[in-house]
Design a protein around this nucleic acid. Sequence first.
DNA 1: GAATATAGGACTGGTAGGGTCGGATATTAT
DNA 2: ATAATATCCGACCCTACCAGTCCTATATTC
Lengths: 134, 134
Amino acid sequence: MLQLSKKVEYGLIALRHMAMKPSGNVVTTKELANEYDLPYELLAKIMQKLARGGVVRSLQGVKGGYTLAQRPSDLKVALVIRIIDDSKPMVAECYTEGPEGCYLFYNCTIRRPLGKLQRNLNVLFDQMTVQEII
Amino acid sequence: MLQLSKKVEYGLIALRHMAMKPSGNVVTTKELANEYDLPYELLAKIMQKLARGGVVRSLQGVKGGYTLAQRPSDLKVALVIRIIDDSKPMVAECYTEGPEGCYLFYNCTIRRPLGKLQRNLNVLFDQMTVQEII
DNA sequence: GAATATAGGACTGGTAGGGTCGGATATTAT
DNA sequence: ATAATATCCGACCCTACCAGTCCTATATTC
Ligand code: SF4
Ligand code: SF4
């Protein structure tokens, strides 16, 4: 269906929220979940992934939370997707998994033409940053 | 995940096949299924949808089959997707289903920004025709 | 050491996508 | 006529994936 996953949407909402506050400001998951009515446990996982991916910095313990680790203008949406969904936004699975991913690989006539589409997509998601969704 | 559905891929493969033959040439589903090793029953459904959508013309009975109903250069990929998947390639479900589609609708902060992305996507899929995948 | 935050594994439930089956209808050839 | 071959179309299964939940461990502050 070509839709962004909910996780990515929640992640973007959270990142946008942080990007609007003065840089260095600490935000907790609970705070975000309350503000936007997002499922707390799920959002927590997303934030953890973003932390592992180096997009946000985590601070444990009381008075802990997350801060942005990159400037919003440097933070590409493509990266956020790759971190949260464990894969780049691909138009066909064979691009990620190779010949093993699809039994049609060798006599597929649309694989190469779709490459053009893919490249255009890459540009689209790479040029869009968190700064732009403010 | 942002991937094209298998149905759409099969449809595009079929359409490409037809587009390469002299116009008016009749092609059967069985022929296509054999040539590209596609699941016959599934492909049949896809062809039926394309017929209902006016992309191909169907001829019943012995010596029947399908012919292209439009010039390949006029046949936009966006249309093929909409016909086969019953929806345009949308980046967020609220764009198709409106406020009812997502409980976050009214306090979602990324809906409007994603609109920009959506418009760019539309252009991408609208400008690509079946002619281009030959 | 109580309170509160992240970290992370395990699990559940719903749904949509890919694929299959069976039968109806239309057309042609013998 | 009747057999053969094609589209048509509804119903069904099945599996993978996604959103969401629960529970416990660990780190930090006060
Ligand atoms: S090989 Fe062809 S059908 Fe298979 S995933 Fe790639 S593009 Fe799609
Ligand atoms: S989260 Fe926002 S953008 Fe995504 S579907 Fe809901 S309202 Fe639309």
